[in-house]
């Protein structure tokens, strides 16, 4: 049963990802990306990665969607003029065919060879997770701090001082 839900969420995620490419309205496309993200969070949860799922749901599907929605509204890029819409539609029309072809070929290759990957699917205990994050990954925590600093300076340069020149 759990396996069925994983497969269902994955299929829906690919559909939502494809929709984010295909949809001509930028706003709908952004929301579609958020939906794909939420479905990915569900998959992570079903695979036993509880904390990663929470992060994916709140940050990727929440925060990033907000960032994109603001970017879309600030750039007014949701142009709906007829020519533009037609052009976008024509340029991405091949995507479903490519996806179906690629997916079918990979599945065929995977099943036609003697190659097996088994998911052990043992959720990590909180103690193990805490140990891994705080004892083993000191350099990543340092990296996160520096990355956040970099992001802060980026926002200062790109937004705060833009109008001064």
């Amino acid at each position: 049963m759990q396996q069925f839900f994983i497969v269902l969420c994955l299929v829906l995620m690919v559909v939502a990802g494809g929709a984010a490419v295909m949809l001509r309205s930028m706003l709908k496309s952004t929301i579609s990306l958020g939906v794909a993200s939420a479905l990915l969070a569900a998959v992570l949860f079903l695979l036993g990665a509880f904390w990663a799922a929470i992060f994916e749901l709140s940050v990727c599907s929440g925060l990033i969607t907000v960032v994109f929605v603001s970017a879309v509204s600030l750039t007014n890029s949701d142009r709906k003029d007829e020519e533009h819409v037609k052009e976008h539609r024509a340029r991405v029309a091949a995507l479903p065919a490519i996806l179906i072809f690629a997916g079918a070929s990979l599945l065929f290759i995977l099943f036609s060879h003697d190659f097996n990957i088994v998911i052990s699917s043992t959720p990590a205990s909180f103690a193990a997770f805490k140990e891994a994050l705080w004892s083993l990954r000191q350099s990543d925590i340092l990296g996160q701090i520096i990355a956040i600093l970099a992001g802060t300076f980026a926002v200062i340069v790109l937004f705060k001082e833009r109008d001064n020149i």
Binding site: R137, G143, Q144, A147, A150, A154, L158, R162, I165
Partner: peptide, 24 residues
């Protein structure tokens, strides 16, 4: 560690994008 390598690669990358765009 390979993952930490990725983290610092990204930090270097982010800082260089902003430096290139520094003068707006």
């Amino acid at each position: 560690d390979l993952f930490s390598l990725y983290v610092f690669l990204e930090i270097t990358g982010i800082a260089s994008f902003v430096l290139i765009a520094l003068l707006n």
